[in-house]
């Protein structure tokens, strides 16, 4: 069982690297016959790679744990990648106006298809330095307090809110507890229910527990096919249930953290399909899919009055939960 994304895609990467090497050699090749033979071999290898990719990403072979690894893929597009691809005139706003600035949640106004919107999203880093700067996408209280500030601004200026969800969890450290991480998350969720502007959330990677729902109590919730949404990280669940964090795979399966399950349980409105090989292999395709998804749902929400938007969001979340009612 692969324990991280690098292990999951190890063989694939080896084929890719081999193809790259052959291509580099082909560029230096001057003998036409040898060049032709080399290129034929490259094509062959690429076909093999694609077949392997198809097999790896065959729904039959992608369980909740594999999806967890894909959702965490270091090259998977992050919030600011979507903002760059889908928006114009984005200005990042910072600070909770109470002494602190968070770098794991980013946000600010932008134009989406020509319409002003407010963007809020978790942001991860790609190299060691930026990962630390982004605190691995784990927001502190000031992140959620900034979100509240931006939600209020969106309401004042009648801007729909687009959230991008991608966090392993909220930051659990001493600083966060001291400044009230729980209150910050709860207040952010509650603020989202006070809004009369349309709100759309897209789970683009990891929908990690309270840290995720803190900015995702939206009129519409969409999920990329291989993203995950969970009440607790699988490793944390395994640590609690079996005292074995390494049993993440079993926990991911038990928790049913895939987009298909979220749709089945009425938690999300739509699954946005990913290309074979995941969002990180063909980001441009994914940007188009996400743009189309947000655009369709915003268009629908724009036909409602502000009061209807608010009431519909309330009733949507009011219905969440599955239980029995017996006669007593």
């Amino acid at each position: 069982m692969p324990s991280n994304f690098n292990e999951f895609e190890k063989e694939l990467r080896e084929i890719d690297e081999f193809i790259e090497k052959m291509k580099a050699e082909a560029r230096k090749e001057t003998n036409p016959t040898a060049l032709e033979a080399g290129q034929a071999k490259i094509l062959d290898l690429e076909k093999t790679r694609d077949r392997y990719l198809e097999m790896m990403y065959d729904p039959e072979n992608l369980g909740p744990w594999e999806k967890t690894l894909i959702a965490r893929a270091p090259k998977r597009p992050y919030t600011l990648d979507y903002v760059t691809a889908l928006c114009q005139d984005f200005t990042e706003l910072q600070g909770d106006r109470n002494g602190f600035a968070d770098n794991a949640i980013v946000g600010g106004p932008a134009l989406f298809e020509g319409t002003p919107v407010m963007i809020i999203g978790h942001q991860k880093g790609r190299d060691i330095q930026s990962r630390q700067f982004r605190n691995f996408g784990m927001a502190k209280p000031e992140g959620y307090r900034k979100a509240i500030r931006l939600f209020e601004m969106a309401e004042r200026f009648k801007m729909p809110v687009i959230s991008f969800v991608d966090t392993p969890a909220a930051d659990p450290g001493v600083e966060s507890e001291s400044r009230g991480i729980s209150e910050a998350i709860a207040a952010s969720i509650m603020k989202m229910f006070a809004l009369t502007v349309p709100t759309v959330a897209v789970v683009i990677g990891e929908g990690g527990s309270g840290g995720a729902i803190g900015i995702a109590a939206s009129s519409r919730v969409l999920m990329l096919e291989h993203s995950v949404y969970s009440v607790i990280p699988p490793e944390g669940c395994a640590a609690i249930l079996w005292r074995k964090p390494e049993m993440g795979k079993q926990a991911a399966e038990a928790l049913k953290i895939s987009s298909a399950s979220a749709l089945e349980y009425g938690i999300i409105d739509e699954i946005l399909p990913e290309p074979v090989g995941g969002a990180h292999r063909k980001p441009v395709e994914v940007y188009a899919t996400v743009r189309d998804g947000i655009s369709r749902h915003l268009a629908e929400l724009k036909t409602m009055t502000p009061e209807q938007v608010k009431a519909e969001r309330f009733s949507k979340f009011r219905q969440m939960g599955i239980f029995d009612e017996v006669s007593v």
């Binding site: 309270g210 729902i213 109590a217 949404y229 009440v231 607790i232 953290i257 979340f317 939960g321 599955i322």
Partner: peptide, 18 residues
Amino acid sequence: ARMQEGILSLMQMAKTSA
């Protein structure tokens, strides 16, 4: 939240806060 009800439990955070 009750882990055994997975994402349904997480959504109770939103429902109760609403």
